[in-house]
Design a protein around this nucleic acid. Sequence first.
RNA 1: GGGCGAUUAGCUCAGUCGGUUAGAGCGCCUCUCUGAUAAGGAGGAGGUCCCUGGUUCGAAUCCAGGAUCGCCCA
Length: 1053
Amino acid sequence: MSTYDAVPATPDHIAIEHRVLELWEREDTFNRLRAQNAGGPTFSFTDGPITANNSMGVHHAWGRSLKDLVQRHRAMQGHEQRYQNGFDCQGLWVEVEVEKSLGLNSKQEIEEYGLDKFARACRDRVAEYSAVQTRQSKRLGQWMDWDRSYYTMTDPNIEYIWRFLKECHDREMLYRGNRPMVWCPRCGTSLSQHELIDSYRDRTHPTLHVRFPFLDAPEEAVVVWTTTPWTLPANVAAAVDPEAEYSAVRTSQGIDWVMTARVEDLFGEGADVVRTAKGAELVGRRYRGPFDDLEPGAAVEHRVVAWDMVAGDEGTGVVHIAPGCGGEDFELGKVEDLEVLVPVDDAGCFLPDYGFLAGLTTADAADPVRAHLEQQGVLVRSGTIEHRFPVCWRCGTDLIHRVVEEWFIRAEPVRQAMIDAAATVNWVPEQYGKRMEDWLRNMGDWCISRKRYWGLPLPFYKTESGEFLIIGSIEELRERAVDSLDGLEELHRPWIDGIRVRTDSGEIAERVTEVGDCWLDAGIVPFSTLGWGRESFQEGGYAAGAGEGLTQADLPDHEYWEKWFPADWISEMREQIRLWFYSQLFMSVVLVGKAPYKNVLGYEKLHDETGRAMHKSWGNAIWFDDAVEEMGADVMRWMYALQTPSQNMNFGYGPANEVRRRLLTLWNSYAFLIRYADIDGFTPTYADLEHRPPSATALDRWIVARVDETIATCDEALSGYWTPTYARAVESLVDDLSAWYIRGSRARFWRPESDVDKDAAFRTLWYVVAQTCRLIAPAMPFMAEDIWQNLVRDRAVDAPDSVHLAGWPSAGTPDTEAIRAFALAQTAISLGRGARAQGNRKLRQPLREAVIATPDADARAAVESLREEIALELNVKNVRISDAVDELLEVEIVPNFKVLGPKLGKDIPRVQQLLKAGDYERSGDDVVVGGYTLTSDEIELRTRPREGFAVADEGGLAVAVDTELDEELEDEGLARELIHFIQGQRKDADFEVADRIEISVTADARLRRVLDRFGDEIRRETLCTALAVEDGVTGAPFDADGCTGTLAVRRTS
RNA sequence: GGGCGAUUAGCUCAGUCGGUUAGAGCGCCUCUCUGAUAAGGAGGAGGUCCCUGGUUCGAAUCCAGGAUCGCCCA
């Protein structure tokens, strides 16, 4: 009758995980955990919202695994938590995907399609993918309150942002200003930096060299070069490098100024240079603009300005400046206070006041522009150029720069407060704090508007006369509304656009059309989800608006906010420093003057296993759904836990397989325990987990001490959010358990009789595996649970139903003596094996004696306590411990630098020399040298083996083995060989471990003697009930060192 | 140009407080175990700890400068 479920040789992670998910579901384990921790100390985690726009990737799984790991750990420690997951719902990414799926290709097509239908499609996409991501996250094992996720598109979230914006306005931080944008003239939309990645293509464009004649000397001109003819009508300045030398060259058209370094390329070797001058001399001179005959150009005073970014390696060394058509031009324009001419509209068509160009696109304008310049006599030459140029990823159209009006929040008023607040945060890794500070010191004003559709509607209202009003809440909107709010289904376009409001002066105001930056949506979360400033708690109230039916998240009250703000911890990838970490901090500093989080864990990027970025089009991307069903969630999670966060992670099936194999060690240890626990009917004692099991041997004490040590290491690592130290500590414990404890204790488990020793062995092994289960539970919740169910639950009285309800193990004071002693024994064993190898004696051959010699009395005592284990490991009859190191070794005394360094300082090298030369005297344990008396703590003994011994040494410890063999030892060795051989036969015949066998053997004289002497042992070890020596047996030939026989092995039952 | 990192074995990476003999996994070679076995164990080969200088009795570790790579900002 079996009490334990049989354990397969290797874990089927996938099957285990599905089984455990079902178990948790059936037993409502997560909610039981929450009930168990209710009222406990709080651990407040704010989840950074994942964009609910696509299924999640393995890089998301990294972050989610870390989040879950820490939350599970804190839960095991008894902390009450909120477990609120978040979805980011608005912004260009969602719009772009929806556009694709609807086959729309421009803003115009969206508007024709209908903003209401478009908004619904965006909401539907969020609903679809938030459901997908929820399913995936559950599969990963993440425990969250999935029914109460927050969605940033809900009315309450938007309303909180309104409130924040109004606060900014009240503090005069809000303004409307210009911003150069990268623009697709065909799609009629700006592109974000992200959309520019990989957007460069080889293109051919027209080039023009154009003269800008000086007003005070019309025959003289600066000559510029441009590849964007359409920007010339927006020219307001020409930039020169004030430090560079310029030359005036006489040509058929007059006198042309260009940078001296460019003269030869432009005019050939025989150029007629009439004058040279520093660029600075040209600065300030005014010139006739190329399109002064058009209204906008005529209104501008064109002049030469200084700019240190003028390049001398291409063009003319004079740069045409159009601040309305270029990012760098715009920045220079701000410095030089230049006019900003924006010649084209949203669709990239020239505006009506551009005369003959009006209505033309930027591309179509190239020829008319050239013709016009030629006609004006200012065109020097025209040509074409092939170069890399950014194009729209949607339609392939050449992108242009275009200055547009946007809304901004001033950074300066809060900059210092934000820096101060960031300094209160514990950044992990530390350097991320420096990055945040650098970002804050350099941050520009926050551009919060987007000329799009699916986003939070900015609550900015303007009257025809220019009066401005900002609405801070739905209530205020209701009070001021001129139109009925009945049609306002939610706070989104187009519905909100139809509501006009009345200003204080009684005028009618309409909303501006812009929506807000999605980082406002995410940044407000520490307020909007926690009920900041609210008087009443509204159950399920957060879902109002676009979140209706998607979530049951509450809209709490201010008391709740006080309880949970600021977050104890947040964690996202490093790029969030300038995104979510920033926007949260900004909004929090504005609203309450402090940081919204106390600890931050950031992590780097996830690459493929060769270190390359994962990319759909490169074919090296790994889908989460595939990964989790192939490598398993636990394996993935353990990989994430092992990963140093400040390093890029190389993720793939190869590394996963390595990790999977390492996990086998724990599994094998568990399987070993189950096998013998089942055979023996072992019943564990749950209280052992708290009070520790009884120890019968030094090995027992050692492994228990190692558990204590490991718990302490894990505690420290996890309290600092540093998972790799935790994961490595656990692996190290498991290695010790398997390689040393179990290997050294195996015989105790398969002895038939029961006694104190076997009981201690079982309880100790059970204790270590069960504690390890608890330790790995946060990182590998499935395997931990599966082992727990079989090993602990229902086997031990009082055991919790789930490892996740079992609490975190408490570290006792580690028995450091036991650990130190065993480390010495390990060294001795390792040395002994080395010595055997030197003496050419394989481990199977028993030897008479090993001698362990050390001058250190403590070390001798430590080794003494483990001599049985050492004898077993070295397969020797006796272990002799000696202080007569000289027998085996030459001894050298070296200073203990760590202790002696600070004491002796510069005398160290001299003392070291004297010791090495043997120029010292011993006085008891002390050493007198060079005028110093050194105690035993202040020196170390180094040893070298003397010639002619099978000796190995390390750190003052030396081990020799007696390699002499007599007949008895040889026979015993042969017996071992024979046992080894028979076990092989058993295995070849596929017998079960517990099957009994009979053996017939035809033996030579020597083998007969071995059978006579060691027959009992051979029968016992091979579970042989009858061993008959007879002639003429047909079977397998045995031959060891010339000792031969033929064996036949049969199963008895 | 400013900022933040990284550089350690063939590969991927640890390395705490500065301590003199720098580690792990994988790979490779040799051996071993065979009652954990598609495993396990031991041993070996393999290192200019990027370079230069400094501080120190002592530097992979701290400081300065440089090189290369990555990232953030401009």
